[in-house]
Design a binder for these strands. Structure first.
Lengths: 211, 211
DNA sequence: TGTCATGGCTAATGGTCAGTAGCCAAGATC
DNA sequence: GATCTTGGCTACTGACCATTAGCCATGACA
């Protein structure tokens, strides 16, 4: 990863690998590298030099593509919450049965946390690193997301389908299980995403007393 | 919290509040302040000046009591895992029934994460901030802790008391639920620690299919 | 009363880092 | 061919920070 000052000095200004790479791809590459590094090292410990090195350019050159380091984090975190909410909406659309709605909601929740584990992991760990108003935006979406699960559980309890002493504890435990997935799941490990989604769906139904 | 340089200059070297405070108390105060600040701002964002200010002294003066900032973090994190393991041992001691062992293990897990939410919160978020060999020590204890739950669940399944498709997913989901508690629980909120412990105990038994 | 240990303090050190300034090559466009 | 835009680069700035060096007041103790 390191290079001598001499090598750096002699490198041509426009490396060949940049040819044929449109601006959008470069931006996406930066975003991806930042995400990976934020997940591995944490936001504060990741330097613009690190992110630049991961895409083959110098730290200051990043500012031709992004406005700030904080902006990279905010984009990742807000995007993550929006996607989770959109996935949830899609999961329950056209379904009436409350039990089936919960199963699909949980499966979508687990799928996202397994498939986008870095986003979810960073999204949960770096909330405190976000400055206002971005932090408030993320927290508002998190609250919205939790409310969807809790109200679903309350509805199931009202209908007599679910049996829970406290809907909020049920919703928290179900959501926190999923958040945990983003910290231990590895592609190619013991379980596939589908297996995980299905089993956690079962677990959620057991939690609400409707196995 | 801020003060003008003039005020700082004129302050006497030995503030009156330090009188009658033994060394051990000062050390404990520093540890406590560091824990709170690490939880609120993150380890990297907390400065020695912050910690000093929280106990009424200057940053450099802290070094009369602690060896380094990293040492403060390591002490917190290793202590947290040791306590969790000790609590678990105490919870299952003298109990043979696997169902009762799981209930008590989960209740101890939840109690710790509610009563010591800052320790648990920092302990989970700052693993990446730990340098070796402390990080390895913490991870080894985490692995040990998880194994206790998983083997308990496997034993329950062997005995025909529990019904789980995968013990590892059951153990992860139970532990992750508890970890979540440390991020949302507030003393004096909707639930007491006892209520929480009992309800999560129930939830865990539902998860393993032995309600 | 004199000496010493303790635990404050300020100043300095050595390092890091986000972001800016300004230069320049190459492709695109006129 | 001339000019403009794009996206690299190096050098620099201003700020921050963990830790060390060295000073000194206070209280304990001889």
């Amino acid at each position: 990863m390191t290079e001598s000052p001499r090598e750096a000095y002699e490198r041509p200004h426009r490396p060949p690998r940049a040819e044929g790479t449109p601006a959008a791809d470069r931006r996406a590459g930066i975003r991806e590298a930042a995400l990976r590094l934020f997940a591995e090292q944490g936001y504060r410990s990741t330097t613009m030099t690190d992110i630049g090195a991961a895409v083959g350019i110098r730290g200051p050159s990043l500012y031709k593509h992004v406005t700030s380091k904080h902006d990279l984090l905010a984009e990742i975190m807000i995007g993550t919450m929006e996607q989770l909410i959109a996935d949830n909406s899609a999961a329950v659309a056209g379904v009436d049965d409350v039990r089936e709605q919960l199963r699909r909601s949980v499966e979508a929740h687990i799928r996202y946390h397994a498939r986008h584990r870095l986003e979810a992991f960073v999204g949960n760990r770096e909330i405190g690193s976000l400055e206002q108003p971005d932090q408030a935006r993320v927290l508002a979406r998190r609250s919205d997301y939790e409310t969807r699960f809790r109200e679903l559980i309350e509805r199931g309890a009202d209908e007599g389908v679910f049996r829970v002493p406290a809907a909020r504890i049920a919703s928290y435990s179900i959501l926190d299980m999923g958040i945990g997935v983003s910290s231990w799941f590895r592609e190619g490990g013991e379980f596939t995403v589908d297996q995980l989604a299905y089993q956690y769906g079962d677990i959620a139904l057991r939690i609400v007393g409707a196995p």
